[in-house]
Structures are given as C-alpha cells and as structure tokens.
C-alpha cells in the first residue's frame, strides 16, 4: 500500500498537530496520576506444584470410573446470575442465570 506517499502535506500537518496535542494531554495525564503503580496483580493460573492433589470429586473430571465416553451431558449454569444475553430473535437467553439457565441453554 502506498497511501503514505499520497498523503497530502495538509493531512500530514494536521496529523502532526493531532499527535502533538495528544502527547501534551498524555503528559498532563501522567502528571496527574503521579507516583508509581503499586498494583502487583497475581494470576494463579498454571501453577506447578509437587504435591499430589488429593481433593475428592468436586469436579466431574475426577470420577473414579474410567473415561466418560458417552454423550456430552453438561448444562451451562453460570455462577454469576446476571448477564442477560439477548439473542438475535429478541429472546432473552440467559446462560448465566441460575434460575433460567437450564431451559434456556437446552434450546
């Protein structure tokens, strides 16, 4: 693509002005914030450990029978009750509502 070459001087100048203005306003934002970010978020995903996990079966995958090769039998029932998702037919399919999830998700 060769758009850059074709960019008019006027466009180049106004873009430059926009960038400079942006930089100036970013500068003031930086100053307003002041101080360093203290926030050290932690993610617990992907933790290796050297202990065996002895938990009993809160989770379906932990059944002591051999692999479940049958049909997919789970129904989504979210833990957060409130995200109402309206589908394209205008129906409220509430995947996340504990009360409605089961029926909505089966359809």
């Amino acid at each position: 693509m060769n758009a850059p070459v074709k960019i008019s001087i006027a466009t180049g100048a106004s873009l430059a002005l926009a960038l400079v203005a942006g930089a100036a306003s970013a500068d003031s934002m930086d100053k307003k914030k002041g101080g360093k970010e203290k926030c050290y978020g932690i993610a617990l995903a992907g933790e290796n450990g050297c202990g065996n996990l002895a938990k009993t079966h809160s989770c379906q995958g932990q059944s002591t029978v051999d692999y479940d090769v049958g049909e997919w039998k789970y129904v989504s029932k979210g833990t957060c009750a409130d995200t109402v998702i309206t589908d394209s037919d205008g129906n409220e399919r509430n995947g996340m509502s504990k009360k409605q999830a089961k029926e909505a998700m089966k359809t």
Binding site: G46, Q60, W72, Y74, K77
Partner: peptide, 21 residues
C-alpha cells in the same frame, strides 16, 4: 484458572466438563 471469565459464565460443572474434554 487460566480462563476465569469463561468458568464464571458457564459454572463449575460445565467448565470442569469442558476442561476434561
């Protein structure tokens, strides 16, 4: 734990089934 919002949206049992598969 790497997909916390997916897990939250579908619930414990469903995410466990998905993770197993």
């Amino acid at each position: 734990s790497a997909y916390p919002i997916v897990a939250r949206l579908v619930g414990d049992e469903y995410i466990s089934g998905l993770a197993q598969k």
